[in-house]
């Protein structure tokens, strides 16, 4: 055992001395931390945007009012709810949670607690943006004249989508 101990220590120190084993520079870890933080921020911003779009969609299409029409209204609301957006959003937040799990502030909490905390944050900020500013309404006006870049025209015009024919008043 003593021979083994000396061998392992000697091997390690020998490799260090021969420059066959070297430390990664501090900058490497700082850069990695920055990239993780940036990626996390992008994911969170996209998630907030999607929740914002969900709330805007319910408001501008009037679908949110269906909830006050009893069980049949709720059933129609659930049918018209933009579920794909919500699914994508939840998947993004799961990815964010997985990304942050290497940090102590994340893993010291049970997974669901941390996930629901960032879900609540994304929902709250998304709702706040829609209800306390007119940014979505302005974006919709720009979308009406195809003035938004890339897929944003479709996002905003899609938020005002009509219900399927079976739900329209004849």
């Amino acid at each position: 055992m003593e021979h083994t101990k000396d061998t392992i220590k000697e091997n390690i120190l020998h490799k260090i001395k021969e420059n066959k084993l070297s430390m990664r520079p501090r900058a490497y870890f700082l850069l990695r931390m920055v990239l993780v933080a940036l990626l996390g921020l992008v994911i969170l911003l996209v998630s907030v945007f999607l929740f914002n779009l969900i709330f805007f969609s319910m408001r501008v299409s009037g679908h949110a009012h269906l909830m006050s029409y009893g069980p049949s209204g709720i059933a129609i609301f659930l049918r018209l709810f933009p579920w794909p957006l919500l699914i994508v959003d939840v998947l993004l937040l799961m990815l964010l949670e997985h990304l942050l799990r290497r940090f102590r502030f994340a893993y010291k909490q049970p997974i669901l607690y941390f996930f629901f905390a960032i879900l609540a944050l994304a929902i709250s900020v998304g709702l706040l943006i829609d209800r306390s500013s007119d940014v979505n309404d302005r974006m919709l006006r720009h979308a009406d004249v195809n003035d938004l870049p890339g897929p944003f025209n479709n996002f905003y015009e899609g938020a005002r989508r009509l219900p399927p024919p079976e739900f329209r008043v004849r």
Partner: peptide, 18 residues
């Protein structure tokens, strides 16, 4: 085990700045 533990120390040295 000795090889694995040696690898552990090598990894620890490489990442000691973290």
């Amino acid at each position: 085990i000795e090889d694995i533990v040696q690898d552990v120390f090598m990894s620890a040295y490489e990442n000691i700045q973290d």
